[in-house]
Amino acid sequence: MKTINQTNRRRFLNKLIKGAAFGTLGVLFTNKLAASNNTNNLANIFAMWTHGSEGKMEGVFHDGKDAVTFGDKLLSKIRTPLTAGYLRGITKGTKFPGNTISIPGEAAVTMVSTSGGAIFTIWDSGTKAKSKNGAFWVHFTIPTPVIANSVRVKVSKILVKCASTNINFYISDVELWDANVRIYNKENQKLWGPDTMHAFPFGSPRTVKYGLCISLKIVGERVSADQILEISGVGVDLIA
Rank of each mutant, 00 (worst) to 15 (best):
L25N: 05
N41E: 11
N14L: 04
N37E: 10
N44L: 15
T24D: 01
G26A: 15
F46C: 02
M48N: 07
R9L: 07
N14K: 06
N44F: 15
K18E: 05
I45T: 05
F22Q: 12
G52V: 11
L13H: 01
R9N: 09
A43Y: 11
K32I: 08
T24M: 11
R11N: 04
T39V: 10
W49C: 09
G26T: 12
G23S: 10
G23Y: 06
Q6P: 00
L33V: 09
R10H: 01
K32W: 05
L42Y: 08
A35C: 12
I45N: 08
S36N: 11
T50N: 12
N40S: 10
T39W: 15
I17L: 06
A43G: 01
G19R: 04
N40H: 14
I17K: 07
G19Y: 05
T39M: 14
A35E: 11
T39Y: 15
N8Q: 04
W49P: 01
I17P: 01
N5H: 07
N40D: 09
I4N: 01
L13E: 01
L28R: 06
A20W: 02
N37I: 09
A47I: 12
Q6I: 11
N40F: 15
K15I: 03
A47E: 10
N31E: 14
A34E: 11
N44W: 15
L28W: 04
T50G: 03
T24G: 04
T39H: 14
N5D: 13
T50K: 07
N5S: 15
F12L: 06
L33W: 15
R11G: 00
I45H: 10
L42S: 12
T24W: 14
